[in-house]
Computed example of a mutant assay.
Amino acid sequence: MPKVLSEKDVQSRPGLQDWRVVARRLHGTFRTGSMVAGIDLVRRIGDLAEQMNHHPDIDLRYYRVHVVLTTHDAGGLTENDVTLANRISALAAELGIDAEPARASRVEIAVDAIDIAAVLPFWQAVLGYKKEVPAGETQESSVDLTDPDGRRPNVWFQQMDVRRPQRNRIHVDVHVPHDVAEARVAAAVEAGGHVVTAGYAPSWWVLADPEENEVCVCTWQARD
C-alpha cells in the first residue's frame, strides 16, 4: 500500500501551484469556459487516470472542471496523487486552460456527542453514508461518515464530556427522492433515533438521534 503523505508535504511539492490541499484531499479547479472544452478535459483526464490506474473524483460544470484526488485504499494522499496532479496541470496548460486554486473548498458537518458509538449509527442510516477512518487514525479514535458517491458533505463527531444546555447542537436537512423518504425515516429510527414530528410529512419529517440532535428528511411533495 502506498505511503500516506502529510498535508504539509504535499502542498509544499514543486509543480502543484494549481492545487490546494483541503480536508485531506488535493483539489484542483480549471476554468474551461465552455461545456465542450470541459468534456474534452474530463476525457483526457480519464485517459491519464486509466494509464495510472488511479482515478480522481471529477465534477463537470458549464465553465469549470473540479478535480479531487486522494488514494482511497491508503486513506489519504500519496505519491500517486502528486503524480496525477502534475500530469493534469501539464495537460491543462497544453490546452490553454487556467487553474483557479482559490476556489477549492469542502463542507463538513460536525456533531457534538457524549456517546459517539450510540449517535453515529443514526447518522449513518439517515444519510445513507459509509464509515471511513481517516489516515493516521483508528476505528476507536476517529470515524467519519462519507457519501459513497462523494457528492455530499462528510460528517465527523466531536467528543463532549458534558451535555450542552442548548436544545440542539446541530441541524441538517437531508433532501431525498420522495419514494425513498419513508424508508430512510424507518432506517434512522431502527438505528436508534426517533420521530420528533411527522406533522409536516410528506414535505419533511423531523427526527432526532439518541442525544436529541435533529435532522429533517425532506422531499419536494406538498409544498404548494
Score class of each variant (00 low, 15 high):
81 D>H: 03
116 I>C: 08
153 P>H: 04
55 H>Q: 09
139 Q>A: 12
123 W>F: 07
181 A>V: 12
224 D>R: 01
171 H>M: 15
223 R>L: 06
135 A>M: 04
166 Q>V: 15
112 D>H: 06
162 V>Q: 05
171 H>E: 02
149 D>A: 00
165 P>W: 03
87 R>N: 07
2 P>R: 12
91 L>I: 13
23 A>F: 00
50 E>Q: 10
207 L>T: 14
54 H>Y: 07
63 Y>M: 14
65 V>L: 13
62 Y>D: 14
219 T>S: 03
19 W>E: 06
218 C>P: 04
174 V>S: 02
88 I>H: 01
13 R>L: 11
78 T>R: 04
80 N>V: 14
216 C>R: 04
9 D>H: 10
108 E>A: 09
55 H>I: 14
208 A>G: 15
80 N>H: 10
168 N>R: 04
147 D>H: 00
88 I>T: 09
223 R>N: 11
92 A>R: 04
87 R>F: 00
60 L>H: 09
123 W>G: 10
188 A>Q: 05
92 A>D: 06
173 D>H: 02
175 H>L: 03
179 D>S: 03
60 L>T: 15
44 R>L: 12
34 S>K: 05
131 K>H: 07
131 K>C: 05
95 L>G: 12
15 G>P: 08
115 D>F: 03
175 H>C: 00
57 D>Y: 00
205 W>V: 15
201 A>K: 10
15 G>Q: 07
38 G>Y: 14
202 P>V: 10
180 V>I: 14
95 L>I: 08
118 A>K: 03
36 V>C: 08
89 S>V: 15
4 V>K: 13
36 V>F: 13
193 G>I: 05
178 H>M: 10
88 I>N: 06
69 L>T: 08
203 S>N: 13
53 N>G: 15
36 V>K: 06
123 W>M: 07
98 D>F: 02
182 E>C: 08
91 L>P: 00
27 H>S: 03
18 D>Y: 02
22 V>E: 13
165 P>G: 07
33 G>F: 05
52 M>L: 08
193 G>E: 13
128 G>Q: 10
154 N>V: 11
199 G>D: 09
106 R>E: 01
91 L>N: 03
39 I>L: 12
3 K>R: 08
64 R>F: 06
12 S>R: 03
46 G>N: 12
142 S>L: 07
80 N>K: 05
203 S>W: 05
127 L>F: 07
190 E>V: 15
128 G>D: 15
130 K>S: 10
30 F>M: 13
32 T>W: 01
198 A>W: 02
142 S>T: 14
13 R>T: 12
127 L>Q: 05
116 I>E: 05
15 G>E: 09
122 F>T: 13
222 A>C: 06
119 V>T: 11
221 Q>S: 11
219 T>Y: 06
176 V>C: 06
214 E>M: 11
176 V>K: 01
112 D>K: 00
100 E>K: 08
62 Y>H: 13
218 C>Y: 04
208 A>C: 07
174 V>A: 06
146 T>N: 05
215 V>H: 07
77 L>M: 04
203 S>Q: 11
193 G>F: 12
110 A>M: 13
129 Y>G: 05
31 R>Y: 02
92 A>S: 12
25 R>T: 06
28 G>D: 10
116 I>P: 08
44 R>Y: 03
5 L>Q: 10
57 D>G: 07
207 L>R: 03
115 D>R: 03
11 Q>S: 09
133 V>H: 02
183 A>S: 12
113 A>T: 14
188 A>N: 11
147 D>F: 04
158 Q>P: 02
5 L>V: 15
